[in-house]
Design a protein around this nucleic acid. Structure first.
Lengths: 237, 237
DNA sequence: CGATTCGTTGACGAGGGTCAATGCACGTGG
DNA sequence: CCACGTGCATTGACCCTCGTCAACGAATCG
């Protein structure tokens, strides 16, 4: 089931069949989550770690102002909250931005794996470090780039990550965000997000049909965004 | 020597004397780093992990535009780059923003500790998770708050972290940033940073004397910033 | 078939960027 | 001790990106 996870981890090191089986066996159950529903809510420590199998999700936080800010997008193969194995408190929430399918893995199991299976533990650790690197890039994005650049950069990132997860065919992949959500992530209003997207479209860089996104000029899109993929640590070693 | 590190880790769990000794013994040497000098540069994988003992440092990245963006501030007790134990590539640089003292720990030693000493490994893991949580808050900061709020929020954070590290007396602590650096971190120009700082000063919230910063109204500063310290995971368990 | 959600467009204003000059505290060398 | 240079903070004038408010379309769904 979690092919996307294995594909991602192969960047770090390939798992043996028995390791894969162990991971699959640790899945307690799989659930479908409706679009817009929370997978985990801020506050308490859940008893499961969640692995996204299908669809997109986002980390987000509610603000005093009533607005919310999106801090990350998760795609198939991403673990939502290895955090909770060590932190006693979720400091943000995660919700599905499209219909999603989620695997529930008991926290206990993850702890056991972390303790007993060095190789898998390292892979999880590695995945967390990459997540952190992504977070840093988002920070640079918000802090130092214009609206158009920010959006272009996010598109570049999600395209590469989708490729790694095996859900990007040619130059087209699923990008199931409303302009409002895209704005919430990029620190922009929905209106300005709309205009910026339009610029990218008018320049012939991207095309959108419903929630499918096609990249028409990959080289120029990267260049405009200032995107370089090193931070995703793709090179298999 | 690394009292700040131990103080910080106590939030997670107290170390035994032998564990402390092991960490101290793993230090190969200690070096002074001049203000503005790089501790590690983007690119290759160094053979040491760096522990900050005195002074502040920052993670930063150079941009195509020639500008740079600061993605984190490090204070005594912070490990700069546990990353390099698993990632083969530093995707950003770290430099001293004030004169600093840095302990060099061979990567090999850290790997050994991660493999053999579960408790210490967990503590390192925990520290990384907290760093990630901090990063997420910075993201919210840049994405959803005004200049004054951003700066106020950073001040709140650094005050709490300084307390934990044991380098904040009463309401005063060392805040060795130029307005330019502060701006580079908050996504603002130096000029606007100046005006925003002035507002905080005029409102009687903070006072600055050289690089000492005094917080005059802690409650209101937090309120303006929208600061809540949960994300720092302070509660000792 | 409305009802709702999401995208599109316009008008206007404000927060923050840019450019540039000035002041102030140093540290250094003569 | 003064002269000078340098790094940093301060302030003003002006402009542009992006936010706000609001209305209208288009698509989807029960």
């Amino acid at each position: 089931m979690p092919e996307a996870l294995f594909r991602k981890f192969e960047r770090f090191h390939a798992f043996t069949e028995s390791e894969k089986e162990m991971l699959i066996d640790s899945i307690e159950r799989v659930e479908k989550i409706g679009k817009g529903r929370d997978i985990i809510s801020e506050g308490r420590n859940p008893e499961h770690v969640h692995l996204l199998l299908e669809g997109w999700a986002c980390r987000y936080q509610l603000l005093d102002s009533g607005k919310q800010h999106i801090m990350a997008f998760l795609i198939p193969g991403d673990l939502c909250d290895v955090h909770v194995t060590l932190l006693d408190y979720m400091d943000h929430s995660i919700r599905a931005v499209s219909p999603a399918k989620v695997a529930y893995i008991p926290t206990r199991q993850i702890k056991e794996i972390l303790g007993c299976h060095q190789r898998i533990a390292n892979a999880l650790f590695w995945a967390m470090l990459v997540d952190e690197a992504i977070l840093r890039q988002w920070l640079v994005n918000l802090g130092s780039r214009s609206a158009v650049q920010r959006i272009a950069h996010l598109i570049c990132e999600m395209r590469v990550r989708s490729s790694v997860a095996g859900i990007c065919k040619e130059n087209t992949f699923t990008f199931p965000l409303t302009q409002e959500e895209l704005g919430e992530a990029m620190g922009l209003t929905q209106v300005h997000t709309n205009r910026s997207l339009r610029k990218l479209r008018d320049e012939g860089l991207i095309r959108r049909d419903r929630y499918e996104l096609e990249i028409c000029d990959w080289a120029r899109l990267q260049q405009i965004a200032g995107f370089r993929d090193e931070y995703l640590h793709l090179k298999a070693r």
